[in-house]
Structures are given as structure tokens and as C-alpha cells.
Design a binder for these strands. Structure first.
Lengths: 237, 237
DNA sequence: CCTGGGTGTTAAGGGCGCGTCAAGATCAGC
DNA sequence: GCTGATCTTGACGCGCCCTTAACACCCAGG
């Protein structure tokens, strides 16, 4: 079920949106100001955000750029005023769409469908397999030696981010922001602890990782093919 | 330059759009009806389409679904009427955005930027390859003789700056500022040490650099093609 | 031939990031 | 309220990376 976060301080609008969204099979959560909205995004990770610009505590574009610093999730902006410069500012700050009040619920729902449709471009290979285990992203399962490997929620989130970017290097900041939230970007300890967990559960020899590789000082990389030969020239000094 | 196709049958709107878009550095082509519009999309492959729904020969949603059958290029719909059901139909048919006339040119340009921004997830050329090695900026990976070359964080940052400005000369001050920070602009030693590291790891003959060239007294240059031939004839002065 | 500025090369030491472990805190289920 | 699992937090040792310095080299000019 698609999860929508509505950030708005006007009670009637909030209620109308909630009723309509729930009726169309969305899972709805709400926040009444920008600060709690940002916190809710970091905590709940909704699939799409509907953001009213007329918030009591901060400017709407601040909320947008606060999110865009670490996530690309779709943001649809609502606004009461027709100020064109405000529309331009919000769109350029990173909003995906802009709807002016009063708006028709049918239109908002259609724009919501567009945003969600566009954000789900991953019907490709949900199963990644190494020689020692298989990761099924869609089924959220890891199979090793024919048996399920039990992963805790945090372990799974971390593995999922790495597998989605397989073969690519993912920086520590990016991993921390996507798994723990943007305010944890300096807690490098978490990464080391949970990478150790994953390696103990997945690697044939946890002390010599073949799949979950460390790039010292930068981040981590998940790789399925073992094309890690020793360079012929060597690094000998 | 971003290429925009405008499909509209009203001459004044067409002219206004063309003038504004060209003024903002877009490359503009036009079509006056749905059939020629579809033909133009197939032939020219524009980066984004602006489509007026009020076409003489066919319904706008037919044009949209005709495109969506084989391409995901961004489509922004223009319409004179406020009919909500029409908006919903166009958006559900696959349009990315819907702007109602009369519209402000600033808003349309902002929505155009959003569409282009979203359709171009690869703004930089991530892979640069020489004859002896390959640099993959997106994956943060260097491959030489089929094997990964291990680079330390500083080595990678330095290489990244040089590759981003490939073929261009980068001054020492600029390199120092981008890798070590603006307060290190006089530490010329660092540069020489790390250039030596990179050359030892990447160059076939580190003492005779072919890719990481020194411009004495100014800075360094990364070059992939060795088209720096000396004139064969003897026209020396 | 000598001199000096800019460059290339190498080596050594100190600091820091990484892996590891374990105990306390927090949460979920019964 | 208890119990087990999970998350958080701190400490510690090792290896590697950055820094730094010393020296050889090339070239231009005196």
C-alpha cells in the first residue's frame, strides 16, 4: 500500500485529504508543521509527500531542500496563493508538482498517481545472486545453502541499499542517511557494527569479505562477481 | 542544449512559446497537429514535449498513449479548458504534467526544468576510458588490466577532479582547494606526492606520463586521447 | 659552469578509521 | 511484568593513510 505523508496546518483540509486518500487505498500520516514534517519523513519514509506551503514555523522551500539533501522522494506542493514566483521557487527547490488551491480532488489524485508511477521504476531484476547466497529484494528474503537467513530489520535495510546500488560504491553518509535518517550522518559506528553482522551472516569467510567490500575512507560496495584479481604490477614500493 | 517539441495549432501561442523558449536556450521545433507531432517525436527524439490538447485531427490522450507505447520521454500538457476529467484522463494516459491556460511563462519554464531534471539522471559522463585503464565516476572505480585498482580517498578525489575537467588544464590552486580545502592552497608538496601515487598506479610508464600531464608552473591536465603529436614537417622557427 | 625555482621520488612516523566485542538500553510479544 | 531479540553505545588494538621532510632531477638564466 502506498504511504502518503500530508504536511498541513489547516485542520479542515487535513481531514478532507485524509478521508479521500484513505478511500483510495492510501496509507495516510500527517504532520502539522515543517519541523515535525521533516522528522516524520526521516522516521516513516513515506512513498510520497503532500506539502502545504503555508506552514506556521518555516518556509516551504526550506522543507523541500531539507529533504532533497538526502532523498529523492516525490513531493507535491499545495498552496493557497497564486504567486507565480512562489511556484517557481518551490519547483526549482526540488518539488515534483504544484497544485493551487482550490483544487479538485480528482486532479490531486491523478497527480499523485503520476508521482507514484514515476517513482517506481524498479520492475527489473529484483533477485541478485552470488555463488554463496541469493538476495530477493521483492520477497525480502535471503537464502543461503537452501535455508532462509534471518536478518533483523536494520540489517535488511542496510543490505537492501547496498544491493540496489550493486557494483556501485555507496558512501557512508548516504548509507547512514538512507537507513538511519539524515541526522545520523556522523554515526560511523553503526555502519561498522551492522556491516559486521551482515558479513557474519552472509560471507563464507567474514574476515575476508568477497561480497560486502570496504572502500576505506569512502564507503562500502556490494559486488556479486568475484573479479577481484591481484594487480600484476602490484603495489610494491 | 535541451530540445523541446511544441505541438500546438494556434499560431500566436506557438510563436510566444518559441520566442520564450529560445530566449532560455532551448532548441525548439514545432508541429501543428497530432499526426505530424507523433512523426516529429519519432524522427527528432526531442528531450521533452509540450502538447496542446486542442488539436484539430486527434484527441490529446491518443497522442500521449501513442508515445507511451514506446518511449517515456516527458510530456507536459497544455489546455485551454479547466475540465477536471480531461486533466485526469491526460495524466492517467501518461502525461507528466498539466498546465491550464492562461499560464505564466515563468511557471511553464519551471515545470519544464522539473521535467528535464527528472529525465536526466545521468548529468555527467560517468565512464572515461583510456587505452590502459577505465575510470568509472559513478561507481567510483578504476579498472586496469581487468582488475580493480585500489585508490585511497585522497587519491580518488584528486583523480576525480582531474577527470571531471578532462582535457582541460587545472591549476594547482584549484586542485588543492577542491581536494584539501581552500586553506591549503600553498601546500604544493601534497600535489606532487599524490600525482606520483596516481601515476604509479595508472600510468604504463610512470616516468613518462601519457594521461596525467604536468603543465610546469601552472597545474596538471588529464587527457585520454594521445592526439598531442609534434608537427612532422620541419617548419620550426 | 654554477645557481635557483619548480618538480619527481622515496621513506618514516603519527594519527585515525575500521573491525571486533560486549554490556546496557529499548522494544515486542506473551 | 517478564523474557528474548534488537538496537545503541563505548572501548580497544591493528593496519593503513596522510603528512612531512629530505634529496635527486630538469631546465633556464647568469
Amino acid at each position: 500500500m502506498t504511504r502518503v505523508l500530508v504536511i498541513d496546518d489547516e485542520e479542515p483540509i487535513l481531514r478532507a485529504l485524509r478521508i479521500n486518500l484513505v478511500a483510495h487505498k492510501y496509507e495516510v500520516s500527517t504532520a502539522a508543521d515543517g519541523a515535525s514534517g521533516l522528522a516524520a519523513i526521516a522516521r516513516d519514509r513515506p512513498d510520497v509527500v503532500i506539502l502545504d506551503l503555508g506552514l506556521p514555523d518555516m518556509d516551504g522551500t526550506e522543507v523541500i531542500s531539507g529533504v532533497r539533501g538526502w532523498s529523492a522522494l516525490p513531493i507535491i506542493v499545495l498552496s493557497a496563493w497564486g504567486q507565480e514566483s512562489q511556484k517557481v521557487a518551490a519547483l526549482d527547490a526540488g518539488a515534483d508538482d504544484y497544485v493551487t488551491k482550490p483544487f479538485g480532488m480528482g486532479e490531486l489524485l491523478a497527480r499523485l498517481r503520476v508521482a507514484v508511477r514515476r517513482a517506481a521504476p524498479a520492475p527489473d531484476e529484483p533477485v541478485v545472486t552470488g555463488k554463496d547466497f541469493t538476495v530477493d529484494l521483492a520477497a525480502k528474503r535471503v537464502i543461503r545453502d537452501g535455508a532462509d537467513v534471518r536478518l533483523t530489520p536494520t540489517e535488511w535495510q542496510l543490505l537492501e541499499v547496498l544491493v540496489r546500488h550493486r557494483e556501485k560504491l555507496v558512501t557512508q553518509r548516504q548509507l547512514l542517511a538512507e537507513v538511519w535518517g539524515p541526522e545520523y550522518q556522523s554515526e560511523g559506528n553503526y555502519l561498522r557494527v551492522y556491516m559486521a553482522h551482515l558479513r557474519r551472516k552472509l560471507e563464507p569467510d567474514p574476515s575476508k569479505p568477497r561480497y560486502l567490500l570496504t572502500e576505506p575512507g569512502i564507503g562500502y560496495r556490494f559486488t556479486a562477481n568475484e573479479s577481484v584479481a591481484s594487480p600484476p604490477g602490484g603495489l610494491s614500493s
